[in-house]
């Protein structure tokens, strides 16, 4: 192959590589800026901060979360809140998780819930989430 042909081949190769790199970058940006991803990350962080705020409140308290994300699922465990886009398996992890800081005197009752109306309930020395409000005086259990 002569030098001119080699240079032409090199330029074509560079252009093709450039198109491939541009495509990969655009796909990365597209995925990172997807609305579902951003909303899920926000919901996990906001829920965790909500829990921290409730654990900082004296006496019993019951608060309804103002947003409804009917299509998703939320998991509460001892240290974190996770958002799933489909019914999660028991050992499944989510990229949309956020930690809160628990208290030794309040037991967090972990559970998975389909997100509709979401209640955060601190009653006595227990804390959990629920789709229905706690009725007056009723003890929390799973």
């Amino acid at each position: 192959m002569n030098k001119r042909a080699e240079l032409t081949l090199l330029r074509i190769g560079t252009i093709l590589a450039g198109i491939l790199v541009a495509f990969i970058l655009v796909m990365i940006v597209y995925k990172a800026t997807s609305q579902e991803g951003a909303e899920s990350a926000f919901l996990a962080k906001d829920s965790a901060m909500f829990i921290d705020a409730i654990l900082s409140t004296p006496q019993d308290v019951q608060i309804v979360y103002p947003e409804e994300f009917i299509k998703w699922y939320i998991r509460l465990d001892n240290l974190s809140v996770s958002i799933f886009h489909s019914q999660p398996e028991p050992n499944e992890t989510s990229p949309y998780s956020y930690y809160f800081v628990p208290r030794a005197d309040i037991k967090v009752q972990g559970r998975d819930l389909k997100l509709s109306t979401l209640f955060f309930i601190k009653s006595g020395d227990n804390f959990t989430i629920s789709n229905i409000p706690e009725q007056g005086g009723e003890k929390l259990n799973d």
Partner: peptide
């Protein structure tokens, strides 16, 4: 810039929340 739109929480909010846990309960 896009993701910045979702960082709506003021940076001092966690400090206030944890401080009030000490002041109001613990």
């Amino acid at each position: 810039q896009y993701m910045k739109a979702f960082r709506v929480h003021h940076k001092d909010i966690p400090t206030h929340i944890y401080a009030y846990r000490a002041v109001n309960t613990c």
